[in-house]
Amino acid sequence: MNAATSNLVISIGAMQVARKIPFDDPQVLNYVRVAYVVVQLAVLGVYYFITSKIKAKNDQTVLKYVEAANPMTKEPGKLVTTTNRDYDLTEVSKAMRGVWIGIAMMAFLHGYMKYTQPLFIQSLMGLKNLYDSKLVTIYIMGKPAEGDLKRPFKGAGGLLGGGSEPQTDKAAIEEAEKRIGKKDD
């Protein structure tokens, strides 16, 4: 089961469980609020820890790939030349940005709109997303960056698993380098 499908299944299951929770009770609501805050702080803490591990490791191995082309435009993908360190820091930054956006949305949904069920659901999803993170697998669980964990990471894809992924083959990189050379002339 891919990540999008498992997220959907967990969300639907959590919604069913959330219906049974008595959010009208102020004590229960406070417990759910505390759980949400603790989970979000834990997720951010793990990402900050991973950032420090990436910086300490300082892997300067050159990484070249062609970004997946945007299906909405006819432009080909662009060539990216970076290091493993910079790539991983960019990925951690994206993950942390996602957490902060989720916190902002939850502040609006719960603080302004007074919805309570999303607090419970997002507590579970925060832990699930942390578990699915490839950087957590590499830097916390200590697995080598091979196979599915090889950089650049493949896109998550949609519900059916279809997603464009970066091209790392030599032919695609050479083709992108030729395009760049032609544009500079």
Rank of each mutant, 00 (worst) to 15 (best):
N2T: 06
S6F: 12
S6V: 15
S11Y: 03
G13M: 05
M15I: 08
M15Y: 12
K20I: 11
D24T: 15
D24R: 10
Y31A: 13
R33K: 15
V37I: 15
L41D: 02
A42E: 08
G45R: 10
I50T: 02
I50M: 11
S52M: 11
S52L: 12
K55Y: 07
D59V: 05
T61E: 11
T61A: 06
T61Y: 01
L63F: 03
K64E: 12
K64L: 05
K64R: 14
E67G: 09
A68H: 02
P71E: 04
P71G: 00
M72R: 09
T73M: 05
K78T: 11
V80Y: 03
N84W: 09
N84P: 02
Y87N: 01
D88S: 11
K94N: 06
V99C: 01
G102F: 03
M106I: 10
M106L: 13
A107Y: 04
L109G: 03
L109S: 09
L109A: 13
G111P: 03
Y112E: 06
Y115N: 07
P118I: 00
L119Y: 07
F120H: 08
F120D: 04
Q122T: 14
S123H: 07
M125S: 05
M125I: 13
G126N: 02
L127N: 08
L130T: 07
D132N: 14
S133F: 10
K134G: 15
L135N: 12
T137W: 13
I140S: 12
M141Q: 15
G142D: 14
G142R: 10
L149C: 13
L149G: 12
R151W: 04
R151V: 11
P152S: 05
F153I: 02
G155Q: 08
A156K: 10
G157N: 06
L160D: 12
G162N: 14
G163V: 07
S164W: 03
S164G: 09
P166K: 09
Q167R: 11
T168A: 06
A172T: 01
A172Y: 01
I173G: 01
I173T: 04
E177C: 01
E177N: 01
R179H: 00
R179D: 00
K182P: 01
K183P: 00
